[in-house]
Design a protein around this nucleic acid. Structure first.
Lengths: 253, 253
DNA sequence: TCCATGTGGTTCAATATTTGAACCAATAGT
DNA sequence: ACTATTGGTTCAAATATTGAACCACATGGA
């Protein structure tokens, strides 16, 4: 087995379950001699691919991996990165999914993955939707700088369906709830027959710049399935955030 | 020069300006023989750290760097945020500080900042302590949903030191007092020689999920200094609550 | 207090891996 | 047609790696 391959094996031993590992544990995990393992770790330590915890002598991934991920994310086009994640979300939920990017005044659909079912929600690339009345808009506002919500709450909020909420106080309540949950739900406010769940894409400063959502016909969704969709869309948002070089702030709430 | 170090050098050659590089260009960049460079690239290719463009024969960073970055991101977020605040509390008090997170049955130490003094309280990461008999536990119960205190009060409360309070009525009195003050004090109930002050970390719903405390040797603390510690630990708890996305409800301090 | 066990770490002769000069087939430019 | 360059292969010499043995220190149990 080649030396570089061994170093890769050590890197692959780190996981969400085991992000920090001591020398002896790592040696047992990768099945290399302890001295061998130490030398592999030391080489990567010198280049910042891993680092040591303070205090303590545990090893964990280092700042160089973030630099590498950022370079990669800037290399690949947006769609190359996001489409597979969006496709996965569609396959897991069985419903149509899309990513909307925010501008000053609205959100635009920039990427979609459609359900294979005959009856499904359709997204049109470039379609413009408002911040209010949409799950994507509300979750964007929930994680954007506060000044954005202030500005939007002051603006017009025309009724779209007879369920649309148009008062600034209602919007603020929705935004507050979305911020607490980490996702937003919209039931019939934009499309009378649709129910959507959305989660935010965060930039390198931890603020929202876009959102990813799952949209379903209302009659197909019960509270249990809705909760499942929420879970999946939050995970997809997190994956998209990281894959696109953003900062997944570690909220403990 | 070690082989792993050479592989790292190859990785470091990728940049935003040069995200995709051919074999000969890479060999010139890193100043290694072409055959050497190819082997280094091939090893990393096999592990997904780099990939080849399609079509074409350029090398670029691969999907594995994203996985590594995500693991690091999830590891550091909590500690990245909380450690500086905890370090400040330690520096202000000169004593050891720690954050404990609650589970159903106990608290576990998740982060610590140790005093520089030779005689100091030591915390072990992952150490489990009970809700009763500890300042961290009592303050957690004071700000957790009422059902949590009800459940804990019904359970066993074994004596730890000869100062431990084990009656449910005593626990309720301590919790009530802690709720009014905004902090809890524990003097010799868990460790016969230690005195601790703790304040709660609140989640987005305003309930406690963890606590931060300062622990000192008894002989170093008089009432005036204890009041000072209480003040500082309450401030640290507030800062941690806000920084970690919780809700600092205006409870009586 | 002593002993056993475990940690992260160091040393050095035997062994494994790496190296790079020489070579190949294909491509592009003159 | 010739030259220069590309990505890639081969193999004996050179270099780097390996892991058993060892170290200092810490912890827990008898």
């Amino acid at each position: 087995m080649g030396t570089v391959s061994k170093a890769m094996t050590v890197l692959e031993a780190f996981s969400p379950e085991q992000p920090e590992i001591g020398l002896s544990d790592m040696a047992r995990l990768v099945k290399f001699d302890k001295a061998t393992t130490l030398r592999l770790l030391s080489s990567m330590l010198a280049h910042g691919l891993i680092e040591k915890t303070e205090p303590g002598k545990l090893y964990r991934l280092g700042p160089a991996v973030q630099r590498l991920a950022r370079i990669r994310s800037e290399t690949l086009s947006f769609a190359e990165i996001a489409q597979p994640i969006l496709d996965r979300l569609r396959d897991e939920t069985g419903e149509s999914c899309h990513i909307s990017e925010a501008s000053q005044t609205s959100l635009a659909t920039v990427l979609a993955a459609h359900s294979a079912k005959a009856l499904r929600i359709n997204f049109t690339m470039g379609e413009i939707v408002p911040f209010h009345c949409t799950a994507s808009g509300v979750i964007y506002l929930a994680f954007a700088p506060a000044s954005v919500l202030d500005r939007v709450a002051k603006g017009p909020a025309p009724r779209v369906t007879n369920r649309s909420k148009t008062k600034a106080s209602e919007l603020r309540e929705q935004v507050s709830q979305a911020r607490e949950r980490g996702f937003a739900i919209n039931n019939g406010e934009f499309d009378a027959e649709a129910i959507s769940v959305a989660a935010p894409l965060l930039d390198a400063n931890g603020f929202a710049y876009a959102s990813v959502s799952v949209a379903s016909p209302q009659w197909r969704i019960d509270p249990k399935l809705l909760a499942r969709h929420a879970q999946l869309v939050v995970r997809a948002a997190r994956d998209l955030t990281v894959a696109l070089g953003g900062k997944n702030v570690g909220r403990k709430a």
